[in-house]
Amino acid sequence: MNIFRLTGDLSHLAAIIILLLKIWKSRSCAGISGKSQILFAIVFTTRYLDLLSTFISLYNSCMKVIYIGCAYATVYMIYMKFRATYDGNHDSFRVEFLVVPVGGLAVLINHDFSFMEILWTFSIYLESVAILPQLFMISKTGEAETITTHYLFCLGLYRALYIFNWVWRFYFEGFFDLIAIVAGVVQTILYCDFFYLYVTKVLKGKKLSLPA
């Protein structure tokens, strides 16, 4: 555990809680892609199956349980509790175009051809693109609530911090996981355009809206 890893995890946790609080306080999930949230629930479920087989640390187990619990709570709020506020018409990204290729890639390129390892690889690949329905929705409507942009910023920051964590681990532990690193870099690149808008608009007190 290093400082980048810890702050990365906390940033991830902050993102998840910001989103839950936004929906809960406003009693609305307007502007939130339910499809991205379903993908994240799938990501956590397929990655954290090792909760049942391997104990790593109390920290590790607690965070996994919290991430999974929050992911399903978010999906429940969007599709059940506050379903009436869900903007399904604008959430039109075709997720099969992500899930099918990612599934194929996980079977082809993995560290070990075993059930758990392929599911883990699938979750790593899927996480790297799971935000696309959300970004697609924002580009379609041309705007995002400020609280939604804070959520996206924390989520992107988590990924950027993980890259620093891998640099640290490579230098000080001689460790690297190519699958996690490549997927993590792809995921971070997807946020670059958003980071630019966040810094130039949202941090200056303006609402995030895209030019028509």
């Binding site: 991830h12 990655r47 090792d50 391997t54 790593i56 590790n60 070990d112 883990w120 996981d177």
Partner: peptide, 10 residues
């Protein structure tokens, strides 16, 4: 193997 086993990262 180069992978994290056990997977300590989240």
């Amino acid at each position: 193997s180069l992978s994290i086993n056990p997977k300590d990262e989240l």
